[in-house]
Computed example of a mutant assay.
Amino acid sequence: MNRTQALGRYGEELAARRLTATGMHILARNWRCGRTGEIDIVARHGGTLVVCEVKTRRDGGFEDPMAAVTPRKADRLRRLAACWIDRNGVPDSVQGVRIDLIGIVLPRRGAPLLTHARGVA
């Protein structure tokens, strides 16, 4: 695993912990759908299925992680959500689907800064 992959895995672990702490139930992590791509985290929050994209950046000159969901990326996440539902079904209690973004910035010193944007696409 290279440094970029390790950074991403660390961020996904932080995100999963935060989602669980806020009452979400993690259904899948790093779920792949052929050539369409990967969902970082699939969770259930009450009656909502949540497809969560996680972006982790080191503090510095890189793009803010919250700018990561472009219209093209949002379309891909919608297709991935449909693929997950097609392959796994939807629990009876689920009434909707939401796409969230968790942006994590790792400062040079101090605790990671985590931002959770709900319903970004």
Score class of each variant (00 low, 15 high):
Ala28Met: 12
Asn30Met: 02
Asn30Thr: 07
Arg32Phe: 15
Cys33Val: 11
Gly34Glu: 10
Arg35Ile: 09
Arg35Asp: 11
Arg35Ser: 11
Gly37Asn: 12
Glu38Leu: 06
Glu38Asn: 05
Glu38Thr: 01
Ile39His: 05
Ile39Leu: 13
Ile39Thr: 04
Ile39Gly: 04
Ile41Thr: 08
Val42Pro: 08
Val42Arg: 10
Ala43Arg: 01
Arg44Val: 05
Gly46Met: 07
Thr48Asn: 06
Thr48Ala: 10
Val51Gly: 01
Val51Met: 01
Glu53Thr: 03
Val54Cys: 07
Val54His: 04
Lys55Ser: 05
Lys55His: 08
Thr56Met: 11
Arg57Thr: 03
Arg57Met: 07
Arg57His: 03
Arg57Gly: 06
Asp59Thr: 05
Gly61Glu: 12
Gly61Asp: 15
Phe62Trp: 12
Phe62Val: 13
Phe62Thr: 15
Glu63Gly: 10
Pro65Lys: 03
Pro65Val: 04
Met66Arg: 15
Met66Gly: 09
Ala68Lys: 12
Val69Met: 01
Thr70Cys: 13
Thr70Glu: 14
Pro71Gln: 09
Pro71Met: 09
Arg72Ala: 15
Arg72Asn: 14
Lys73Ser: 06
Ala74Ser: 03
Ala74Asn: 02
Asp75Val: 00
Asp75Gly: 01
Arg76Gln: 12
Arg78Val: 10
Arg79Phe: 00
Leu80Arg: 02
Leu80Ile: 02
Ala81Phe: 03
Ala81Pro: 05
Ala81Val: 01
Cys83Val: 05
Ile85Thr: 10
Ile85Gly: 06
Asp86Leu: 14
Asp86Cys: 12
Asn88Phe: 02
Gly89Tyr: 14
Gly89Ala: 15
Pro91Gly: 06
Asp92Ser: 15
Asp92Ile: 11
Val94Asp: 01
Val94Gln: 02
Val94Leu: 07
Gln95Trp: 06
Gln95Gly: 04
Gly96Asp: 04
Val97Leu: 08
Val97Met: 05
Arg98Ile: 07
Arg98His: 09
